[in-house]
């Protein structure tokens, strides 16, 4: 028995080594940075150990703004994108003709460069001296007021960011959900039909529980992905996100390291650790809740 487990560890050694070198060590390192007060980049010295970096970050209005933005983004995009993806996949799997074509169309955004997509979104939403942008033209058409979605009010910018994020994460979710739906044994549906089960009840009582593990997977990875959002915001609002008021936590970390006002690895590390704790907590809650749900 013991010899067996020794051998198992031996086999695991390469991957454990990789994990330690590239994941555990950097994490510990970041944690150490975040605790070193008065760190001097040039001399690589610090004056003490404590929680000052955390308290600085937590009182920094830019960080609070980034925190708020990130939370709004997460809370809106994860449920909405999962829900829409579920709807689209359910429709995709119930049609037969041209299914392949639709699937390809829905998957296209996944293989498209996100920055290029961001540019297209900018063109669609931005209001310049020359044009109001396509979306505003449509708004006018329906008798609404024009809004500058890129440089205008906060809610408009947030709307575009959420819209864009949902659009970008959708294809992957649709891909996962359509294959999950396809893997449900059709005999369950046949049995349900013989028993005269209404369509909606089939969906909620049979389909959903059957693909629940996949939905849980999508929600958890969705949360993590949305918490780490950064490039989406850059694609839409440029690199000076603090000025646009659209920064995210990861953006804040980046700015603290390399931005125009950067050069503070301690603050960046503290912010990164805060993000890590948030994601860890949320993921644990997710897992616990979904485990209880799946067991019932």
């Amino acid at each position: 028995m013991n010899q067996n487990s020794n051998r198992a560890w031996l086999y695991l050694l390469p991957s454990v080594l990789l994990l330690v070198v590239f994941l555990i060590y950097p994490l510990i390192d970041v944690f150490i940075y975040s605790a070193e007060e008065g760190y001097n980049f040039a001399s690589q010295t610090h004056s003490g150990v404590g929680t000052y970096n955390y308290s600085y970050v937590l009182h920094d209005p830019y960080f609070l703004q980034a925190l708020k933005n990130t939370f709004i983004l997460v809370i809106i995009t994860v449920p909405v994108s999962t829900g829409i993806a579920l709807l689209i996949s359910a429709m995709l799997s119930s049609i037969r003709p041209l299914r392949q074509l639709y699937q390809t169309v829905y998957f296209l955004p996944y293989v498209t460069n996100t920055l290029a997509v961001g540019l297209v979104f900018m063109v669609l939403f931005q209001k310049t001296e020359y044009t109001d942008g396509l979306v505003n033209l449509m708004l006018q058409w329906f008798g609404g007021e024009t809004v500058d979605f890129i440089d205008g009010p906060y809610w408009a910018k947030m709307f575009v960011l959420c819209f864009y994020t949902i659009w970008v994460v959708m294809p992957f979710k649709i891909l996962v959900l359509t294959s999950a739906l396809a893997s449900v044994n059709p005999d369950y549906y046949r049995a349900a039909r013989v028993d005269g089960t209404p369509k909606l009840r089939i969906f909620t009582k049979i389909t959903l529980p059957m693909i629940a593990p996949m939905i849980v997977y999508l929600v958890i990875t969705g949360f993590i992905g949305a918490f780490k959002a950064y490039s989406d915001a850059v694609a839409l609002f440029g690199t000076d996100l603090n000025a646009a008021g659209m920064n995210t936590i990861v953006g804040y970390v980046y700015d603290m390291l390399y931005g125009d006002s950067g050069g503070y690895p301690s603050y960046a590390s503290a912010a990164a650790i805060i993000l890590f704790v948030i994601v860890l907590t949320i993921t644990c809650i997710n897992l616990l809740v979904s485990k209880r749900q799946l067991e019932n």
Binding site: N185, D187, Y188, R190, A191, A192, V194, D195, G196, T197, P198, R201, K205, I206, P209, M210, A212
Partner: peptide, 25 residues
Amino acid sequence: GMVFQNYALYPHLTVLQNILFPLEN
């Protein structure tokens, strides 16, 4: 009433819920 070759019992429901399923329709 049909009994399928592989039974097609809903795996996420208990035996009682499985038997109740047609009645709830």
